[in-house]
Design a protein around this nucleic acid. Structure first.
Length: 454
RNA sequence: GUGGCUGUAGCUCAACUGGUUAGAGCACCGGUCUGUGGCACCGGGGGUUGGGGGUUCAAGUCCCCUCAGUCACCCCA
């Protein structure tokens, strides 16, 4: 509709913000468990940080402009160049392996679709300085644990793993070696399942593959094509077996880390093009309805090319958009709601004697004691009939209404359920107003008993 | 960037083959209810039918353009 946010951008109303916060909380919690530390960089970067490696054609997908200092700048479309720069600048001083994560908001100028906007938040998790496949297993486990933390299971999400080096060795073994042929194979693998097989076969034969070679490539994309198939098919190929041993070890580590049943080999995982050098993976919803939830892998040469330090590295990006859609579809987002106040101060029977000033004193004392307190922001509302105010407290989402009850005490009444049965607590006004520890402790206990019933 | 489909209140939807002043539920605001209540009842605000143009005595409805959403391409660093 007219007058909203720019196309591909989102307004986060409180309900939607709660969803976003729910996802980010899970990300940070998992990162903490795996001992990753958070960093961030500027959302605006020099344009050439992105064109240097990817060429000028990338500018079409960037939010870029000339700033008032005549600098060519762009909103960050990805975090990796910033990350590489930051690591390179202090590479010598950083304890290896580096375990860093970030949750940047990223921007790219392209046609928005479901699960793909012009702006999104993306969890970036990276490890630098460790060539072992144990690090690869650790990285994928972080991604999978994010799924678990959000309530998803291996029935909802599957991780598909491939390895550039293994694939290259397999192609070498069947004598597919030219750059053009390999490029055609990668494209065809990437499109497996999305296009008709004859289309792919034509592409492969045009690139110089024989019919038998093309058939072999297609056999690798079958969903039941396992690591054992590779082992049998290439039993006499030391180059393939060498990489297979590494993958065996990788899968063994994943099983030991408790995520074995989330993962399977899938040679059609290509991950764009350029910079991945080893094991790569993507996370998909099991029904295959949505875009990839997460993608990543090893990029051992990128830091040298981008930042000038020669360190092995690996990482993944996980966006909030597709993940959010999946959580909503699975009914796992309903508990993510905006924060509710503990207490709502209403004008009870004691209101006429205490007045609004008395209410404000109570409110101040409650807040000083750490409670979240709401109230009607006018004397008129404070003097309104109590029944209506009780409803207002309910609608505000408060756990309890609190008021001067006319006997010199202060009454707290839970707002859930029937009025007559509502849990009630009476507290001495002087103790509560002065913040006496035993009185506020009583109130805290009462509130937490209410919140556990919600 | 290319093509298909869809746009009615904050939300979910009505409105016959074109025919009075575009309706309902929920939500929101106000009021009544001294109280079995995440009620009930009364009242209210809120729409240039995404926007613009055209056809017609008459357009939410038909046609064109445009914007937005969505799907498939392209792309996915």
């Amino acid at each position: 509709m007219a007058g909203g946010a720019l196309p591909g951008f989102r307004d986060f109303y409180p309900d939607e913000f709660a969803h976003r916060a729910h996802i980010m909380r899970a990300w940070r919690e998992v990162a903490r468990r795996y001992a990753f530390v958070e960093y961030d960089g500027p959302p605006l970067e020099p344009l050439d940080l992105y064109t240097r490696k990817s060429g000028d054609e990338i500018v079409g997908q960037l939010y870029n402009f000339t700033d008032k200092g005549d600098r060519q700048v762009a909103l960050r479309p990805e975090m990796t160049p910033t990350f590489a720069r930051m690591v390179a600048a202090r590479a010598n001083g950083l304890r290896k392996p580096v375990r860093w994560f970030s949750i940047p908001q990223l921007f790219r100028y392209e046609r928005a679709q479901r699960g793909r906007l012009r702006e999104h938040f993306q969890l970036n998790v990276d490890i630098v300085g460790e060539p072992s496949e144990v690090a690869d297993a650790e990285l994928l486990t972080v991604a999978i644990d994010c799924m678990r933390e959000l309530g998803l299971t291996s029935a909802d999400v599957q991780a598909r793993v491939s390895d550039r080096r293994l694939l290259t060795a397999m192609l070498d073994a069947i004598a597919v070696t030219s750059d053009a042929a390999i490029a055609a194979v990668l494209l065809t693998l990437d499109k497996a399942g999305k296009e008709q097989e004859p289309t792919g076969v034509t592409r492969l034969t045009t690139a110089g593959l024989t019919a038998a070679q093309a058939a072999a490539v297609f056999s690798w994309t079958r969903s039941d094509y396992s690591i054992e198939h590779v082992r049998r098919e290439f039993a006499n190929q030391p180059g393939v077996l060498q990489h297979l041993a590494l993958l065996d070890s990788y899968f063994a580590h994943l099983s030991a880390l408790g995520v074995g049943d989330w993962v399977r080999l899938d040679l059609s995982i290509v991950r764009g093009l350029a910079y991945y050098t080893g094991i790569v993976f993507e996370l998909f919803d099991a029904k295959g309805e949505l875009r990839a939830i997460c993608g990543g892998g090893r990029y051992d040469n990128l830091l040298k090319e981008l930042g000038g330090v020669d360190l092995p590295a690996l990482g993944f990006g996980m966006g909030d958009v597709v993940l959010g859609e999946l959580l909503k579809e699975r009914g796992l987002m309903s508990r993510a709601v905006p924060a509710r106040p503990d207490l709502f101060v209403i004008g009870g029977p004691g209101a006429p004697t205490e007045g609004m000033a008395g209410a404000l004193k109570l409110i101040g004392a409650l807040r000083a004691a750490g409670f979240s307190v709401d109230y009607g922001l006018s004397d008129k509302k404070y003097q309104a009939p109590p029944r209506g105010q009780f409803e207002t407290a309910q609608k505000a989402g408060a756990l309890a209404a609190i008021y001067y009850d006319g006997t010199g005490a202060i009454t707290v009444k839970g707002v859930g359920g029937k009025f007559a049965d509502a849990p009630t607590l009476q507290l001495p006004a002087p103790g509560l107003l002065s913040g006496a520890a035993d009185i506020t402790a009583q109130l805290t206990t009462f509130i937490s008993s209410l919140s556990s019933n919600v």
